[in-house]
């Protein structure tokens, strides 16, 4: 392909008649054209992603009015605050438990969908993916209304089973449970759809061979399904870990960090401090704490994606 692309240029270069405009020639060259085509992308990433990312490191070293360099002062200040450690703890609890439940529920539901006749699968898949399609800000409002302290439809239903009114968003532990529940509700369909796509790509012969060898359903899952899906499970889980760890919408709308900052995660606390409290440097320092875990997850994703590319 490369030879074919270059030949016209070589031919024209040997003819003195066409030599007159070097600019025209440069534009015709493949690498120049390719560079021009990617230029908008490069500018966008450089100006609006890379520059702000490094700028936030600079911001994190300034004082509140952004006129004086304080070095690591913001970080020292954060380490001394109890709320900060509460946020670190809650972010980890939130991200890890939500991702584990999303992965488990997604895996189970994908198996059930895969199990029923192919004819009906489309309909079920369509219904089960609805939580992922609704903008999370909108669906969280519905959950907020379902959790309403005085008119909660859940508490109304539970009262028939003799279960007393549950303070879904009022009590610290229940509020933690509620934000995780809503996040699982929103994210599990994504896992389901990824697993379903990957389940369909496992060759039937493997299961047939296993059945002949007398494997039971658990052995079939453990020795065939899981190894075959390992890559997709890894990528999906890591990807979801990033998104969940950086979540903002659900916690912001459902509890806004309350009660008493017990459900704040990095993103919502950074917003509270940086935008609402207009202490931009401190807010930037808070959000920078997301970087290590995101970087580790990104490195592993990249490794898996490249491995997948090589296999194909």
């Amino acid at each position: 392909m490369v030879d074919v692309a270059f030949q016209p240029n070589n031919v024209s270069a040997t003819q003195p008649m066409r030599k007159r405009s070097s600019l025209q020639k440069a534009l015709k060259r493949k690498s120049t054209a390719a560079f021009l085509m990617t230029l908008p992308l490069i500018i966008l990433i450089a100006l609006l992603v890379l520059y702000p990312a490094f700028y936030s490191i600079h911001l994190a070293t300034l004082n509140k009015s952004m006129q004086r360099f304080v070095g690591l002062g913001n970080f020292e200040f954060l380490f001394k605050r109890d709320t900060f450690w509460l946020v670190v703890k809650q972010s980890c609890i939130f991200a890890v438990s939500a991702v584990v439940f999303k992965a488990l529920i997604g895996f189970i539901v994908a198996h059930f969908v895969h199990n029923i006749p192919a004819k009906g699968q489309r309909k079920w898949r369509g219904m089960l993916l609805v939580p992922w399609v609704i903008p999370p800000a909108m669906s969280t409002l519905a959950w907020l209304w379902l959790f309403d302290p005085s008119y909660s439809a859940f508490n109304y239903t539970l009262s028939f089973f003799g279960i007393g009114p549950i303070p879904w968003t009022g009590d610290a532990d229940w509020a933690r449970f509620s934000v995780i529940l809503v996040n699982v509700w929103y994210g599990a369909p994504f896992f389901m759809i990824m697993y379903l796509a990957s389940l369909k790509s496992v060759p039937d012969q493997l299961y047939e061979a296993a059945a002949i060898d007398g494997a039971n359903w658990w052995q079939r899952i453990w020795y065939i399904t899981l190894p075959m899906m390992r890559n997709i499970i890894a990528i999906t889980t890591l990807f979801s870990l990033i998104v969940t760890f950086a979540n903002f919408d659900i916690v912001r709308i459902l509890t806004a960090g309350g009660p008493l900052d017990h459900t704040h995660i990095f993103a919502t606390w950074a917003f509270r401090i940086g935008i609402e409290g207009s202490d931009i440097p401190l807010g930037a320092s808070v959000s920078l704490f997301m970087v290590p875990i995101l970087a580790v997850a990104a490195i592993f994703i990249l490794r898996d994606v490249n491995k997948r590319g090589n296999e194909a």
Binding site: A33, M37, I45, V49, I242, A246, A267, G274, S287, L294
Partner: peptide, 27 residues
């Protein structure tokens, strides 16, 4: 159109996709 740095750029694009909005909104 393979050109100098094109594979690095493709990987960079993927990495950019992994940077969440909650990291960039303050800067």
């Amino acid at each position: 159109m393979r050109f100098w740095g094109s594979t690095t750029l493709a990987t960079g694009v993927f990495l950019t996709y992994l940077i969440p909005d909650s990291l960039l909104f303050i800067p």
